[in-house]
Design a protein around this nucleic acid. Structure first.
Lengths: 249, 249
DNA sequence: GGACCGGACTGGTACGGTCCAGTCGTTGCT
DNA sequence: AGCAACGACTGGACCGTACCAGTCCGGTCC
């Protein structure tokens, strides 16, 4: 085994350690196993606990690790793709003769950020499922998606197959038929994390979506999605029969 | 002004400070202004520099702030938000309290490319008005727009003031009330010409729109628009009453 | 057998410190 | 006037310490 020491030099120690831990997450079958405690890693790699926490924090942000207070830091689960949900993406891909797939990067129970909490109508401190997925078609990652789902409405969500259509799951298992959504779209550049996660060429623009989906009066989903700008577009029809706040520019 | 002290209690200090700084990013016209140095904030709020860095780091991750090594921490520019509706740019910006300006770059009579010709229902050889404009709001160029307008339906269009709302013009002068549109949205990078025309920083992503607008059975407009991806977003409402192929992802 | 408690582990919060590296304005010299 | 150096600022990296809060297991007692 290679030495556990980190080298002095131009590459910061927290980056070196982050990459070592990233490799560790790739070992087959490691999902949900611990990576070693922070104090253990600081001894093994001869760095401070703050440096260990910085490295781990970045991988947690990327969805490759997750932390449980008082318990440990674990490798996030990775699952193989399956059928895609939501008519538009699936139909759009199929209309182009492509086979769509979904990969779940992470599912965990967390307190969502204030904004997401508000959008989901959660009380302070209520938890939600945090779900991160990749959408794949024609062998390429088309989109990265991060979603929040209210735990009170969807208990035990993580026990279900989250690579299938969530809307079908909500309807069949929880009796929550999604019937409306609010959505915002803009363009942005891909940062390093998403370039890496999505396997993108540098500099490629992303089409970003934020959506809140509802079943009747219950908000059941708040998602952020990023689609490759060069491989994806949205078609829509607009007319004056729609209410004024529904008509596009 | 409220006290700058952070309170002891259940809410961690880095969270309290984060929310104070978040509010500071919302002040009108603060884009690209510094929020105060880390050392300044540690004195003002009586916390350690690590606590300040933790709070700032979270807002940087959310895209509300950005850091420049050796220079400072700045408020990120805010995106102009547009409700998805069938309004002209002029009407849309006014509804959000911004003073829109349009600069006409070029207006001429031409035979449009085959695709535009087809979309406008023109016969072979028919001419259309070619109109190129910059859309400006809040002192910045928001969009570049290239549009085609069928000359048979809109004779003498170039004699009118084309900096105002075209939809209003079509209705009042030509009796053509725009009542529906087909629109496609995607993301792309700005090429050199558009960087120059729009005065954009290099590398900024664009939100691209292609639209065909109709008055009854007449297609009256075919446009391509490019909006700054960092300053513009589109909101839309979706529900199941729409046909499945109208629902975006 | 079950409940409870304490200890040993875990991650989370907060502090203080030092030094490195980037930016920019000022000053002095040519 | 131009250029280089320096100082004062900035963020970045890394270290150490202390304590808080959550989890879990083993031991003890009833």
């Amino acid at each position: 085994m290679a030495s556990d020491a980190l080298s002095d030099g131009p590459i910061p120690k927290h980056v070196q350690l982050r990459e070592i831990l990233r490799e560790a997450t790739r070992i087959e079958g490691r999902a949900h196993t611990p990576i070693g405690s922070e104090r253990e890693l600081m001894v093994r790699y001869d760095v401070s606990r703050a440096t260990v926490r910085e490295a781990i924090g970045q991988l947690v942000n990327e969805g490759l690790l997750y932390r449980v207070h008082g318990k440990g830091t674990f490798v996030a689960a990775e699952r193989v793709e399956s059928q895609l949900h939501l008519a538009s993406f699936t139909d759009d891909m199929r209309r182009r003769g492509l086979e769509p797939k979904t990969r779940v990067l992470d599912v965990s129970l967390d307190r969502p950020p204030a904004r997401e909490s508000a959008m989901l109508g959660l009380a302070n401190g209520d938890r939600a499922w945090r779900l991160e997925r990749l959408r794949i078609a024609a062998g390429d990652v088309m989109a990265l998606e991060l979603g929040w789902y209210p735990e009170p409405l969807l208990p035990g969500l993580d026990a279900h197959d989250l690579t299938e259509s969530l809307y079908t799951l909500f309807s069949e298992v929880y009796g929550l038929g999604v019937d409306s959504a609010q959505q915002t779209v803009w363009a942005e550049s891909a940062d390093d994390r998403r370039i890496k996660l999505m396997g993108l060429p540098v500099g490629i623009p992303l089409l970003a979506f934020r959506r809140t989906s509802s079943a009747g009066h219950h908000a059941v989903e708040h998602t952020l999605s990023w689609y490759r700008g060069d491989r994806y577009q949205v078609n829509m029809s607009l007319d004056r029969r729609m209410s004024p706040d529904q008509l596009p520019t």
